[in-house]
């Protein structure tokens, strides 16, 4: 199957967001790039299945997510990250200053269950609607909403534990958060 020039451009244009998603999912840049490459190859050999006029990015994200999960089913022990190995692998070499800014956030993100992390990344970072995210993950919209909600809550409490003063000025909120955990 040949990429027509405009399709090739569209695929290339999708690479930055696919990479960001893959890096955030897997915690490894090299692995993420392999995933993106496999996604592009899979997409090209299945172009006849893509419905023209529908969201190309959503289709590509679906492929990438499925590849990621089938790979992870083979390497089950890496799915969750109890010992923080995901977090320590997640070194993405942007400028020093900005990386340090995100260090706490990344390690908190790494502590989320993978289904919550994935839902939050799709909706909160990649800009998909709840409906699109539900399609990508093959689950109900309510499930996605619930996962996103839990992910946010969990992140807030993780970041709160690590750095109390950073969560926000409202101590009532903080007390409420802590008492409800």
């Amino acid at each position: 199957m040949t990429p027509e020039p405009d399709l090739r451009d569209a695929l290339l244009a999708a690479v930055p967001s696919l990479r960001a998603f893959a890096i955030s999912l897997s915690g490894q840049v090299d692995r993420a790039d392999d995933l993106v490459q496999d996604t592009l190859l899979r997409a090209l050999s299945n172009l006849h299945r893509f419905e023209r006029g529908t969201n190309l990015n959503a289709w590509l994200f679906t492929i990438l997510r499925n590849l990621f999960h089938s790979e992870y089913r083979k390497r089950r022990r890496e799915v969750e990250d109890p010992d923080g190995s995901y977090a320590s692998r997640l070194k993405v070499q942007p400028e020093q200053g900005s990386r340090l800014d995100f260090e706490d956030f990344r390690s908190a993100l790494a502590k989320l269950p993978s289904d919550q992390r994935e839902a939050l990344l799709l909706v909160g970072a990649s800009g998909f609607s709840y409906e699109e995210a539900a399609n990508i993950c093959g689950c109900a919209v309510g499930t996605i909403k619930s996962r996103v909600n839990r992910a946010r809550f969990r992140l807030a409490s993780l970041l709160n534990v690590d750095d109390v003063d950073d969560l926000g000025p409202d101590s009532m909120t903080r007390a409420a958060l802590q008492s409800s955990i």
Binding site: P16, S17, V92, R106, L109, R150, R152
Partner: peptide, 30 residues
């Protein structure tokens, strides 16, 4: 049945997530 975050915390989490993610998106394509 789910816990709810107040909007301030929710916004902070969302802002940090997008900032981290945007940095990844803006990396040059290999």
């Amino acid at each position: 049945s789910d816990p709810k975050l107040d909007t301030t915390s929710q916004k902070r989490i969302g802002d940090q997530l997008r900032a981290m993610y945007d940095e990844l998106v803006q990396q040059p394509v290999p």
